[in-house]
Design a protein around this nucleic acid. Structure first.
Lengths: 230, 230
DNA sequence: CGTGCCATTGACCATTATCAAACGACGTGG
DNA sequence: CCACGTCGTTTGATAATGGTCAATGGCACG
């Protein structure tokens, strides 16, 4: 592991406020994965052997059932994957794949659980990390139940624009992948984009330009649904 | 508070393995709520002042947006409500109401956070409780995305049958309420039940009798979606 | 200059919502 | 004891939403 990786990892919320001694214990057998795009790194149903920390790149968590596939979330650095599964030592509820070249650290699940069982600060940081993930997925369920496809896309664009800090930005994924993330088909997202042209959305491939005021009026974003947690 | 309540609370997973001293601190200002059916006890968007423990009865968590309402989960004892919101001291993402006469304990959020900040065992128990809630809501998102209404109902009935330990059981809520829980309209659930008659489901009001083998063959339950966590 | 890969568009189908009406169980007052 | 509401459910008709299949078009890359 590069020392720059170690510094990066040390800065994760998961390690905020913990002692160097515990940090060293948890990361003693850490390894770095450098993965190409479209590489599956986690498979639904398996017991977690590692906690994953996303250092750079982009990850999609997804699940399959009865011949269908759905994307549950996009994960960007810094993020910890499968905290709950590692904590409970239960099978992972989702698979995960890279959407871009990505760099991850793996921490042995056993070491993580050992630290949770001995260190209050680590336990608290993990609980806070988990709280954030819980609230994110909870919002996603509300998003799915309370909004239609066009509204979900509109609000997703507004959130991306906020993250980018500009009304012009480039989306990181293809439209078909974004469609999966929003829980709709590739064809349908095309029609949703077409609808949004009336509401301040111009697209050219992955380049987006939005009229924030106009799109906000249409999308009705709500802090109880939109926007990532702290 | 009755001493029988104290015993009940002490048995919650949230307090497993913690010292009497910490338990006493967290529960020092606990109060008991005895609520009639259809009473709203939590409102989306408010900062949590208490952690709630459901001792008996039945609670529905729900959310409203843009004139629509959706039910996110049914909660049965023993369950802890809004652990994540209390932990992060962030607004609650959902409202909650009783579906039956219910008995709850309230623990001051401040005392809970104080204990999380000082006691490893409590922190770990809370993290495990949160992991369970996370995994439950994660499964619900998959359920929503990967199955249609009839399949969701079929699998819900199978799970209820397992909980009841019998192929004959009585559902606790009206069909319209169940429809909301499954994310569909009251009218649609009626048609879904009609479809399931072909697959081993007989209903008489709230009384259900299912042919487990036949319904299982139709519903294709999957442990990565169905069934509550530990 | 193909050859793929996306994205778009059109036609059609499946799923679910909505609105309205009817139905049935149940409790109350005459 | 019966007529009458009320409430929850069912049923029917219609519309909205989104999925699937097929064809087309643009564009990057070899």
């Amino acid at each position: 592991m590069r020392s720059s990786d170690a510094d990066l990892i040390r800065g994760f919320a998961l390690f905020r406020g913990i002692s160097d001694a515990i940090f060293d214990e948890v990361t003693a057998d850490a390894a770095i994965l450098d993965l190409p795009p479209d590489h599956v790194l986690l498979t639904e149903g398996e017991r977690p052997e590692h906690l994953f920390l996303l250092l750079s790149g982009l990850i999609e968590s997804f699940s399959q059932y009865n011949g269908k596939t759905t994307t549950l979330s996009f994960l960007r650095p810094p993020a910890a994957l499968i905290v709950a599964a590692v904590w409970m030592d239960q099978p992972q509820l989702h698979s995960a794949r890279t959407l871009a070249r990505s760099r991850l650290a793996t921490l042995p699940a056993r070491a993580v659980r050992a630290a949770l069982a001995t260190d209050r600060a680590f336990c608290e940081a993990a609980g806070r990390e988990l709280s954030i993930r819980y609230r994110d997925i909870f919002k996603e369920l509300k998003n799915q139940r309370l909004r239609n496809a066009t509204d979900r896309l509109a609000n997703w664009l507004l959130t991306e624009s906020q993250v980018a800090g500009s009304d012009e930005f480039r989306i990181a994924v293809g439209k078909a992948t974004l469609a999966a993330r929003l829980g709709i088909s590739g064809e349908h997202i095309s029609r949703a984009f077409a609808q949004l042209r009336e509401h301040g959305v111009e697209t050219d491939g992955k380049e987006m330009r939005i009229n924030t005021a106009k799109l906000t009026a249409f999308a009705k974003p709500d802090p109880m649904i939109d926007g990532a947690e702290a």
